[in-house]
């Protein structure tokens, strides 16, 4: 089980993630061609300017209005993306050598993802206008995103049965990869596209700005 999970399953998941992402992007770009009012207005400069704003913490009024959310959301996303990519244990497993995070940093980053997840969860449950649009799938998705981090944390401290926990960790990691293109986590891929379109609508078509 452990061997399968740490070897073939990972590669299969990664393949599904990559192929699925390409499929999703190609589909939406193809659709954009049919939607005759999208591509003619796309301009790189407006897109980059807006995306730059929106990936800069507190770069927009929306972010400044909700400082706690913004701080949590940026930390959460950065840690979510970079902890698994820069973890020494992951590199060793794949037999590659890259810059990696010192263990204490990785711990803190993992904790941030978990705390961030809990923050989002309480928001989903307690803030009426978020709760109103929270479906079971939203909660499940959040838990699935948190799962590899929680199990990774547990595995490191060898709480519970290490073998079981690490296997679960890897399974959750693979699940995470697989669901990226096929669930709302696809926002990771589409962010640049939807943002770029709105940036051009605001900037190129309407001489204004969207931040």
């Amino acid at each position: 089980m452990y061997e399968f999970v740490s070897g073939p399953l990972f590669w299969i998941s990664l393949a599904i993630c990559v192929a699925g992402s390409i499929y999703k992007l190609v589909t939406v770009i193809k659709l954009a061609r049919k939607d005759k009012v999208v591509l003619p207005y796309m301009r790189l400069s407006y897109s980059m300017k807006s995306i730059g704003r929106w990936i800069t913490p507190f770069g927009t009024r929306s972010m400044r209005l909700t400082p706690i959310f913004t701080a949590v959301a940026f930390s959460f996303h950065i840690c979510l993306l970079f902890t698994p990519l820069l973890l020494l244990a992951h590199h060793e497993l794949l037999g590659i050598r890259l810059i990696h995070l010192p263990d204490p940093v990785a711990h803190v980053m993992t904790a941030i993802v978990i705390i961030g997840g809990l923050f989002f969860l309480q928001r989903r449950l307690l803030v009426p206008y978020v709760n109103n649009v929270t479906y079971f799938s939203d909660i499940l998705l959040l838990l699935l995103v948190m799962a590899p981090f929680v199990t990774g944390f547990l595995a490191y401290y060898q709480w519970f049965d290490y073998r079981t926990v690490i296997t679960l960790h890897m399974i959750f990691g693979c699940v995470m990869l697989v669901i990226i293109p096929f669930t709302r986590i696809v926002h990771m891929l589409f962010f640049a596209l939807t943002r770029a379109y709105m940036a051009c609508e605001f900037g190129y078509v309407r001489n204004s700005q969207d931040w």
Binding site: I29, A32, S62, L65, F69, R184, H187, T194
Partner: peptide, 22 residues
């Protein structure tokens, strides 16, 4: 209308509710 915009928007919205402030 199930064009690029509608498709991308429906899949991308993470139901975060930030638009409420607007």
């Amino acid at each position: 209308e199930m064009n690029a915009r509608m498709t991308a928007y429906l899949q991308t919205c993470v139901h975060c509710g930030l638009c409420a402030n607007a």
